[in-house]
Structure formats: C-alpha cells, structure tokens
Nucleic acid binder design. Structure first.
Lengths: 338, 338
DNA sequence: AACGTTCGCGCGAACGTTCGCCTATATGAT
DNA sequence: ATCATATAGGCGAACGTTCGCGCGAACGTT
C-alpha cells in the first residue's frame, strides 16, 4: 500500500487493461458482472485511490479555489476567519475541491499574486473578501474572464457574482429597536465615507430614523477608523455635548469601536445600558463577556462561506448560476448593553 | 496570454527544442549567450509561467502541506488561527509550497482524512495542531513514515519533530511576578489532568511556588473545562473561602476562564487589580479592552507557524533537520489586572 | 593529422489519468 | 447465409514538465 498503487497495479491483479479499470471505476463502461467484480475487488484489496495530481493533469484543472485574506494586526481579532474558512473548506471538499490560501499583498502587487496563481494553473477560481469600491482584483478578474465569487459588493456598475450580508438591514433593525425603546438622540460611530461596507451599514441607520420621522441629532454622526481608540474619542466628544444634545443611545459600525465607547462611558462615570445604550456590529465572540455584555449584530458568516463556494463551484462546472447575487440577513443579538 | 503558454510555445518562438527551454529556464543547461537571450526574451514576451500541475506530475509530489484545525464553537474565538495560518502560508510560499486546509473530523474518522490525502497524493506532509496524549494522528503518521511536524508535544516516548510554546515558562514568569509583588495565596484555574497543555502550564506554577518555598494554599488548585462559566464558578468558590484562606491572586490557564474570574469578582463587589489580581493565558487580542485590561501570557504564534513549516519543508527536501524540537518562550504582558 | 574533451542542444521517455476510437465476439434481424 | 447492431474490452494518445542520454561540432593536445 505504501508503494504507489496505480491503475496498472489494479489492472494487473484483475487481469484487464488499466484503461478498463479507469472506466469501470468511473462508471463509464459496462462490463460483464464477473469482470466488474474482479476489478472492484482488486481495487479494494490494493487500496487503490486515484492520484489526484494525474487527474488534474488530465483535466487541465487543479480543483483548487484560491483565497486570500487581510491579516489583522496582532492586537485585532479576526473572529470571522475560522468560521468562514471552515465553512468554505467543508463545502469545497463536498464538491471535490480544495481551498488554496495564499498571502495577501497590499498595493500594486496584490493583483500579481492572483495573476501568478492563474498563470501557473494552481487555481480554477477565487473567492474574494474585503472587497471595496474599485477593487483592482475585481477589475482584473473580470477582464481576464476568470471565475470568482466575492463576499461583499463593490461598485454597482460592475457585474459579478457576489454574496453579501445586508448591513443596512442590520443597523435598521438595531435603530428600530432603539426607537421603540424611546430613544430619539441616537448617535452613530461610522467609518470614513470611502468605506463601502460602512456606507451600507450607515444606510440602515438613516432609513430607520427617516421612517420614524426622527431627525438626526447634530454632531451625532461621527466618522473615523474603526479602532478602539477612535471609538473612545468619538464617544467622549458625544458625552461632552450639552445635556439636551447628548445622545442617549449609540450604534457603532463595529464591535471594536463599541468597546471603545463603553470604555469612554465608564471614564465619564456613566453606566452602559442605563445612562448610555450601546450597540455594536459583528458580534465578536468575546463581546458576550464584556461588562455589560454587548448587544451586537451577528452576520451569518458560515452561510456566506458555503454560498460563495457553492456558487463558484457551479460556475466552475459550467452550470448556470441560479442567483448571481445573494443578500443574507444579519441578526440583532440583544444583551445588557442595550 | 490567455491561451496556454507552454514550453513548446516558447521553444517555437526561440527556435529551439522545448526541453532546452526547460533546462535553460531552470539553469540546468549552459547554452550560447545568444540562444540564452532568445529563450529568455521569448519566455518573457509570451508571459510563460510553468504549469504547476505538470510539475507536480513529473515530480510525483504536490508541494502541498496539509493542515486541519479544530473549529471553535461560534461563541469562542480562535484568535490563533489568523496569525498561525498567515505565517505558515507565507513561509510555505517562500519555499515553493502551499497549504491545503481540510475539514477537521472528530473521533475514528479523523485519521481517515489524513489517510485519504496521502493516498490521493494531495499532500507531501502535514502540520498538526491540537495534539494531545496518544494522538491517533501521530501514531498513524509515524507508522506510515509520512512527514509531519506538530505544533505541540505529545507522549514523551513518541519521537517526532515538534515546535511548542514553553507553557511552564509562561506560568512560572507570571507566578514569579505575583510572588515578587508579595502575593502568597495564589490560586490556579486549571484544566483537567488529561490535558497535556494544561499539565505543562500548571508545571510552571508548581515550579515557581516551590522555588520560592511558598506552600500551595489548600483549595487553591481548581480544575475544569476552560470556559467562561467554569472560570466564573471556580472563582466564586475561591472568593467564598474564609478571609484567611482566600487567595489574593489568581492565574487562569486561558483567557476565557480569566474573564469568568473577573466577572465573578465583580459579582462579589471586588475590584480586579486591587482586591483580586488576575492573570490569563493566551493574550487574546480583545483582553486589552476589558475593564480592567487583562494581564496575560502571549505566545509567539507566528514564529511557531513559520518554524513548523520551515522544519517540514526541510524534511520534505530530504535535508537533515537542525533541531528536531523547538521550544519557544512566551511573554508576560502586564496590564492593569495584575 | 589524429584523438580525447568540452560545449551546445536535440530526442525519447516517463509520471498516472481519461478519452476517443478500434476490434473481436456474440446477438439479432433479414 | 448475410449483414447490421450491440457488447466487452483493448489500444494509442494526450495533458506539460523534467531528466538522462546521445550526438555533432568546436576546441585543444600530442
């Protein structure tokens, strides 16, 4: 079993040609019941397993799906990765594919990594994450006509298959909840306007406020990088507003800023959940252990990963895509902070 | 460029045989300067890149490293994964290898996944994590003589290459720090005795206490699964001890239990860092944002990932391994909780 | 002038698989 | 008896690469 068991070995044992073994095992040839039996037994007893490299060679494809992700800084957490990767790997394996993770490069050379994987025929398609407006990878792959599915949308005029979480629906849900609890001055800690995901999430905030006929409080929309420190500083500014203008609730476009907000509230001697209500976004695993536990919006990450691979495999098999765009609904997880 | 550029295409353009192109590009054949130039230019202008599938076919290897990890439950965080995976992927790529992630299976069928990847020749070697005593994968791979490197030790009598973090050194550092600050009753929230990693980390606790000549306080060593809830309950039990027996400091073998401990302290109206000192283990990215920020022990994960791949690649290239066992030192990260 | 030696390059083979085509025998219809 | 047809399985080729061997020409030595 350790020396390579090839079709020829099985054929020798079964007393047929190796091509016949191939066809029989792949169900492409009808043979006499006895021969069929002999071949199956030989394959079984020798422990034959097809050499995937040779299969790839013959098929001219690698049955690999390229995937690259931005590595978070060591003090940030990528709680997404485990779920997303695991779900993709499982879905891919079920379809006879595997994932090929490769290092993420910033800037100009980013597309080079994709080009190289295509040129060396290491992958049959890509799953993209962290896409943004005018993502060079999308332009490149569309131009090359190379199969890919993106987790996340980009420019509306670019036509490509994607799966995304409906961020607007998430914040809308959260803001509606806050409005129903009587809050009127609801602040938002947002990302810079250049962030597509940020704009999506923010949209739900506007929608909910407008639908309720509640005008935005002045100074209540703050933007910055989504870090703890930025969240803290923005919140301190909000809390220093005169009493009548000060927001009673706050929604952050990610958990890290929400945690910064909670920290700021404590610095001002306020109790989160009572004096200031805070809602985050992402529902990172640890936020349930914060004091108080953070209300946040959870994305169906595993489902997204499965869907991305499922769609990509459909493309790779040359079948028509049922739905080119999939929008998944996030869920508000209520905890003591709101 | 989109139609396949093979050696033959380059050869046709350069006016030589395709085998010559191969050898020249691989630096295995000395040719006249003019021919050399012609070949390089042809390869360049056509954008030739070797077909990796064919290379694998020829070499009889896949240049892939199999890796599988236990998926944490959705409410736990695997902050390790991003760093570990990224570092491995980078190191592998630099050596001409790629990572092949595959789904983790529990129980009996776990080894089957490894067997299948070997039989179908999809991987040349494995990196193992989450190894424990009598890990069936280690037994299987040793028996097969298939190359692998483990991140984590197993039974002492099993001889295989590994990289590990010196957990004992980590807790020793932490306990020495606590002792130097005057603490004498130092509790430990530990894992069940069946956990190898737990025993390693606990060892440092014993060593430091013994070296200082401080006897362990009774009831101060508690064991359980490393969850928030277990950490909380164990700490409540400690805090309910009579004043003279109650520990003044506590070290948890992972951050999740430490966070449970902080929660328990708050429930009893104690202030962490003043009334009860808490140290965690792992230094998960978010613990810096807890209130108070958690002192914890950080493992050099990226370094471990690089080392694992480096050693495995050395094995795969048939070179002798400099060091079969690598023990990396963790670092105590001091914050307000201790 | 004859003879090794090096240089520059071509040629055939092989890795293991799948696919299309071919052949020989058996089966049925005319 | 003849011919078309189906059945069972063999055979050659190809995917793109690398590797070992061979061969002619140029070169230097005696």
């Amino acid at each position: 079993m350790s020396p390579k068991v090839t079709l020829k070995a099985v054929a020798a044992q079964a007393g047929v040609s190796y091509q016949t073994v191939s066809k029989v095992l792949n169900g492409q040839l009808q043979v006499s019941p006895e021969t069929h039996q002999r071949i199956l037994e030989a394959a079984q007893s020798l422990g034959y397993r097809p050499n995937q490299i040779a299969r790839n060679m013959r098929a001219g494809r690698s049955f690999m799906i390229g995937y690259s992700w931005v590595q978070t800084s060591p003090d940030q957490v990528n709680h997404i990765l485990d779920q997303f990767l695991s779900s993709m790997v499982r879905e891919a394996e079920a379809a006879g594919y595997h994932l090929l993770p490769f290092p993420f490069h910033e800037g100009e050379e980013q597309v080079d990594a994709y080009r190289e994987l295509i040129a060396t025929r290491r992958v049959d398609g890509f799953v993209l994450t962290s896409v943004d407006y005018n993502d060079p990878r999308i332009h490149f792959l569309l131009e090359r006509g190379f199969p890919f599915v993106a987790f996340g949308r980009s420019n509306p005029e670019l036509d490509f298959p994607w799966v995304d979480v409906d961020g607007a629906a998430g914040t809308r849900q959260a803001v509606e909840y806050l409005l129903a609890r009587g809050h009127r001055r609801i602040a938002a800690l947002a990302w810079p306007e250049s962030s597509r995901v940020g704009n999506d999430r923010l949209e739900g905030y506007f929608q909910a406020m407008q639908a309720a006929g509640v005008s935005l409080c002045p100074h209540c929309l703050l933007r910055g990088e989504g870090t703890f420190e930025v969240g803290r500083e923005m919140t301190l500014r909000l809390l220093d507003l005169p009493a009548g203008e000060r927001p009673t609730a706050l929604i952050a476009l990610n958990d890290t800023m929400a945690i910064g907000a909670m920290y700021a509230a404590r610095e001002r001697g306020l109790e989160v959940g009572r004096d200031l209500v805070v809602i985050g976004f992402d529902d990172a695993p640890m936020v349930q252990y914060l004091y108080p536990p953070l209300t946040s919006i959870r994305q169906p990450i595993a489902q997204a990963g499965r869907k991305c691979v499922e769609m990509l495999v459909t493309l790779l098999e040359g079948k028509p895509l049922g739905e080119r765009h999939v929008l998944l609904a996030p869920r508000l997880i209520l905890r003591a902070s709101a």
